[in-house]
Write a protein that binds this DNA or RNA. Structure first.
Length: 211
DNA sequence: ATAGAGATTGCCT
DNA sequence: GGCAATCTCTATA
């Protein structure tokens, strides 16, 4: 089966439901006049809505920055972090929920040479897209992509289906870099993929520690 | 108005 | 392992 666009309806669930299902999907940058650059999603994090998840940008309601998170599922929410880098999220849930899934790492597929030119500081293949800021740089994602519809074949950024990831091959753990709601194991990753950022999540679906 | 923290990365010791 | 770079939002005045 060839890759097809992810169906918007499949993003209608809660962030913590959708986050593991995005593993294995492809994030594709298809910009006019430029070579296609893409990678398989290997790490995600779920972020909840207003008053629900203290670590989420939407916890205190709508702002200019987080407006896209309150729109329909399938849009890309891009924000600047630490004044330096960009982070990309897939908006999920129902229109108005303010929920999204942060894409934390990719396994490079198409356009690796372009990624290398955009990530001159990467010294190894696994440095190219092994973090939310790194993958945005590699795919050329910035603030001008905020709000792009990933479920539209005419978009410069698209979300496409990939191979199925077995439940037993998924690891989960606490989200990275946050100081609030640190107890929620809302980070998901494909076990043993070299592009997953550190520290690697260690829990199985049953909550058992791996290794 | 001003200050401090933040969903990160890379360079330094 | 520590820490600087530097934009946006929030809290406090």
């Amino acid at each position: 089966m060839p890759q097809r666009l992810v169906d918007r309806d499949s993003l209608a669930g809660s962030a913590v439901e959708v986050a593991p299902r995005l593993l294995g999907c492809r994030l594709v940058a298809a910009r006019p006049g430029q070579p296609v650059v893409s990678g398989v999603i290997v790490e995600t994090e779920a972020y909840g809505g207003v008053g629900d998840d203290e670590a989420s940008h939407t916890f205190r309601g709508r702002t200019e920055r987080n407006a896209v998170m309150f729109g329909p599922a399938g849009r890309l929410y891009v924000y600047r972090i630490y004044g330096m880098h960009w982070c990309a999220n897939v908006v999920v849930g129902a229109d108005g929920d303010g929920t999204a899934v942060l894409v934390r790492a990719l396994s490079p597929r198409m356009g690796v040479d372009v990624m290398e030119s955009r990530r001159p500081k990467a010294r190894r293949a696994s440095d190219l897209t092994s973090g939310p800021g790194k993958l945005c740089a590699a795919l050329g994602i910035d603030g001008s992509d905020d709000g792009v519809d990933l479920c539209d074949s005419r978009s410069p950024l698209q979300l496409r289906t990939g191979r199925h990831i077995d439940r037993t091959a998924i690891r989960r753990g606490p989200r990275v870099g946050i100081t609030k709601a640190v107890d929620r194991p809302w980070r998901f990753a494909i076990a043993d993929d070299p592009n997953v950022s550190r520290p690697r999540p260690r829990l199985t679906d049953e909550g058992e520690s791996d290794r």
